[in-house]
Design a protein around this nucleic acid. Sequence first.
DNA 1: TGATCATCTGGACAACGTGTCCAGTTCTTG
DNA 2: CAAGAACTGGACACGTTGTCCAGATGATCA
Lengths: 191, 191
Amino acid sequence: MHERADAARNRQRVLEAARRLFAERDPATVTMGDIAEAAGVGRATVYRRFPTTAAVAVALLDEHERTLQEAMVGGPPPLGPGAPPADRLAAFYEAMVTLLEEHLPLALGAETGASRFATGAYGSWRLHVRGLLAAAGVPDPDAEVDLVLAPLAPEVFRHQRHDLGLSAERIATALRRQAHALLGEVTASPG
Amino acid sequence: MHERADAARNRQRVLEAARRLFAERDPATVTMGDIAEAAGVGRATVYRRFPTTAAVAVALLDEHERTLQEAMVGGPPPLGPGAPPADRLAAFYEAMVTLLEEHLPLALGAETGASRFATGAYGSWRLHVRGLLAAAGVPDPDAEVDLVLAPLAPEVFRHQRHDLGLSAERIATALRRQAHALLGEVTASPG
DNA sequence: TGATCATCTGGACAACGTGTCCAGTTCTTG
DNA sequence: CAAGAACTGGACACGTTGTCCAGATGATCA
């Protein structure tokens, strides 16, 4: 049994209305009622598919995140396999900055309530970066992976981008340097 | 005009009750009403001094943070002045891990609502770390400082400590390695 | 085409947290 | 001890959440 036509139509209305609302104002202040009203449907209609506003944002982010993940596992280097770990981490950082620059309101909206560690996307990035750390010879990848991912928290990007006024390119450059510093010479440590 | 005796007494009751509540359950679920009830005072009495539950947590954290800050600016090396920037950053990381280990519930409680970037303590740490980055020859300290502080977000520590089960020492070791990787050889870059 | 039935819809409801207000009380000052 | 300032705590109005159910709508099948 496929989704009913009216249900599919309303789902689209809800998603589009939510995208607009998240972009227009502080994503943390968007309520289920706001989304329902903007979409022209009842509140229960929104609740039927999404338990929270964060879930709506996650749904909107999903396709973009999936595209990035595919490039990470099967795309061309340096983002995909083939390049040295330090270069791949730098490319990953750069791709994440692009993603945050394009969809920051959604990324912020996806964080309201539960932590980002619970999302499926975070798990994928974690797996990817952990592999890079291990390949580079980092002593304890399990302890470092979340530290390496921490600078990509949407709230950190928002702070740098808007409170501080830094350009996305400047942030990306800083992250690239850190990627090479963290993984560039690990195997050449004292021995 | 000094604080009235009964007001001071109630302030202490509120702070002690809040400390207990934050430690007992998820700090994000503690409400002003809970604090008032546990302290044995009315809700408006709590509102008189603290606008939000986060403000209560900040007040409780304040003295501990101040102690750390004094050690940073005037204490013995490697945390205080005198040691190389990489060693000082490593010492700072280690001190922050200790602080988080001892007062994680308060740190998490202080984050509910507004972002941690707005707190005065964050500004002090930022200033300190920015100075270390500049002294180490990092090209763009303003862009890197918040990235270097990001792994210390209470939510990241909570994830590593409880979701992953890592020991505080293991996290501190990983951070020390990163500190040396990020600042250890910056001035010895290609030339 | 028209009947049947599962699904969807949207307004209503109760519960909860927030922030404010003010009348009564308590403490400090002279 | 009197007068005034400050504090207290219950009450109030508001907004959000999450659930529920009776009516409406669309898919299926004869």
